[in-house]
């Protein structure tokens, strides 16, 4: 579904990612793990069009989408829950969800998807008239995922969905990710919490200072001694 080849992104003199290649097959969960500053966020932003690449290519559903505009990619089926959630603080929860249906002409579909969000994330429904900025961190994370469900992409890019969450909530959010995947959405997951990510993923790639290094089925990666030492702390 998604093929990234030799991707490179630079900010002025700084090369944020130098040579990143990976594939996300349809219906699977693929995770990118790596230390702080390895280039995980930049990789996702380049895929969704928020950052422009200076080399390499991104192929989505057979089309070359390298450096297309982010809003066009949303319409093509890429949903991205960015690092730091990026909820609209002075829009209500409902407005945050409604606006995620911006590209969808048929508003009954939007309504239907918002109902799905309520079912999957009942906590969001309780907060529907509250301003986005007044939600707790965990609720904001749920809302960010909820918005992506309304956007309704074929692939969902998730940037550290467990960041800043209490352990119970971490389990909850990973359960939701699996549930969304079971509904038919392909998932590309970036995580610091490598053990949980490897647990739910089918495939994994390790990102080190701008390069993809180790890769393979998630179970094998979880058992790899180099990964165990560097990312799993065992």
């Amino acid at each position: 579904m998604l093929i990234v080849k030799n991707l490179k992104v630079s900010f002025g003199q700084i090369d944020a990612i130098k040579d990143v290649s990976f594939e996300v097959p349809e219906g699977k969960i693929v995770t990118l793990i790596g230390a702080n500053g390895a280039g995980k966020t930049t990789t996702l932003r380049a895929v969704s069009g928020l950052d422009k690449s200076s080399g390499g290519s991104v192929i989505f559903k057979g089309k070359n989408i390298t450096n297309m505009e982010a809003h066009q990619l949303v319409a093509m089926g890429i949903s991205h829950v960015p690092e730091g959630r990026k909820i609209f603080p002075t829009l209500t929860v409902r407005e945050n969800l409604d606006i995620a249906g911006w590209t969808i002409k048929d508003k009954t579909i939007v309504k239907h998807r918002i109902e799905e969000v309520f079912e999957l994330l009942p906590r969001i429904k309780e907060r529907i008239n509250q301003l986005g900025g007044t939600l707790s961190g965990g609720e904001q994370q749920m809302l960010a995922v909820g918005r992506a469900i309304v956007t309704g992409g074929d692939i969902l890019l998730l940037d550290e969905p467990s960041m800043g969450l209490a352990p119970v909530l971490v389990d909850e959010i990973f359960d939701k990710i699996v549930a969304i995947n079971k509904r038919g959405t392909t998932i590309l997951l970036v995580e610091q919490n490598a053990s949980e990510a490897l647990h739910i993923a089918d495939y994994a790639y390790v990102l080190e200072v701008g390069y993809t290094t180790i890769s393979g089925p998630a179970k094998e990666i979880a058992a790899d001694p180099r990964v165990r030492e560097a990312y799993l702390g065992v």
Partner: peptide, 10 residues
Amino acid sequence: QDKDAAKLMG
């Protein structure tokens, strides 16, 4: 409020 987030809403 947030241009990147707005882009990601399409």
